[in-house]
Amino acid sequence: MELGRLEYLQALVTEFQVTDSPEAKEQVLANLANFAYDPKNYEYLRQLQVLDLFLDTLTEDSETLVEFAIGGLCNLCLDKTNKDYILEANGVEPIINCLSSSNEETVMSAVTTLMYLTTPQSRQQTTALPVVECMLRFSLSASRRLRNLATVFLEDYCTPLQVEEARNPSKHTAVGIPLPKD
């Protein structure tokens, strides 16, 4: 059974890599992302380098593929090994880029992934100023789900100072620089 699972996941990865059908690609990626929800699969997914597959897919043009890939990352990034791997592979940057997607699910997954990837070491990256600014905007969103998520991010993952800085963008860029006379 366990062997069967690895083989099955291998078949999915292979199909994702060789298929020319965008449809099949989406379906397979969704499968893999859903498998990434269950911690039992983490070992296999690492073995098959699915983490890289997800990270690489973040830069695809297809919105659907990006949505599924960030969903997969969101599902597996709490695991310590996976988290370290993603941070090592400079995964934070493409994840932050997902915040500007027009697809709400993509944005939601990206926010949660950033929360889950936050460690004392990665904090500077995951709560960088542009990210906090983004969260401030999301916290006013009409979508209650997004609003809630952004509020949790601001309250639990950022310092009041960070939030304050993001609220007043003019302050932090020009602190201490005297205004030109005349």
Binding site: Y8, A11, L12, E15, A24, E26, Q27, V28, A30, N31, A33, N34, Y37, E67, F68, G71, G72, C74, N75, E105, M108, S109, T112, R145, L149
Partner: peptide, 18 residues
Amino acid sequence: AKYREGRRPRAVKVYTIN
């Protein structure tokens, strides 16, 4: 594809905690 067919017909969707 045949090998990916589940027991019930489903849409293509990824579930996350969100």
